[in-house]
Simulated scan of single mutants.
Amino acid sequence: MATAISNLLRPQPIRYVINGLTATCVSYGVLSACIHLAHIPSAGIANFIAAMAGITASFLGSRYFVFPGTTESVWHQLARFWLLYAILALMQAGVLFIWTDVAKLDYRAGFLIGTFLQMVCSYFGGKHWVFKR
């Protein structure tokens, strides 16, 4: 059974999806904890804290699970990772702006398009720029 699981997790895109789902769960869990346990009154502040936790989980998962074997400094990779995510956030905002504000189309479809583009660019950006070997 361990061999079957190991073979299933061998393809990098599968590990990328697992890492993304895990980081999303971390983010949502921290958001819920901030709102319901820590009683942070602002959902925006709670979401910011949650996003930092989710992005950190994504970085660690990417470095050690999705793209293992790198020997570069964690600090160099972390800087590129944060820059990549900042660029992706701007891209997502741009897609939503053009799709919804300019073209007057449903924001939900624009969100899905932007999220798909963000996912693809994040994978290839991580593979070829942040965690390159």
Rank of each mutant, 00 (worst) to 15 (best):
T115W: 07
L8P: 11
N19G: 11
S58W: 05
G20K: 01
L60I: 13
L78Y: 04
C34E: 15
D106S: 10
S32W: 15
W129N: 05
C25L: 15
G126A: 07
N47I: 02
I113D: 11
G69L: 03
L90N: 06
Y123K: 00
H36N: 15
L78E: 02
R10S: 06
I40S: 10
R63V: 05
Y107L: 09
H39E: 14
I87M: 14
L117R: 00
A46H: 01
H39P: 00
T22C: 04
S6C: 01
G110S: 03
A50W: 09
L37E: 14
P68F: 09
M91T: 02
F59I: 12
V30M: 05
L37G: 07
A38F: 13
I5F: 11
P13G: 06
T24A: 15
S32Q: 13
V17E: 05
D106P: 15
H39F: 13
H36M: 13
A50V: 14
I45V: 15
I5N: 03
A43W: 09
I45H: 11
S62D: 11
A4V: 14
T3H: 04
M119V: 11
N7W: 08
A79E: 07
I5M: 11
W99I: 02
L8K: 01
A53F: 01
A23V: 05
S62K: 03
R63K: 12
G94C: 02
A79M: 08
R80Q: 07
A38E: 13
L8F: 15
I18H: 01
L84Q: 13
A33L: 13
A23H: 01
A86R: 02
H36K: 09
T100C: 09
T56K: 06
I49T: 11
L78T: 04
S27H: 14
L60Q: 07
L9T: 12
P41V: 06
K132G: 01
Y28H: 05
P41Y: 10
V30T: 14
Q12D: 13
H128Q: 07
P41T: 03
V30P: 04
W82C: 14
G54E: 15
L88Q: 03
S27N: 13
P68S: 07
G44S: 06
A33I: 04
L9W: 09
F81L: 02
C34L: 06
A103N: 00
V17K: 00
A33T: 12
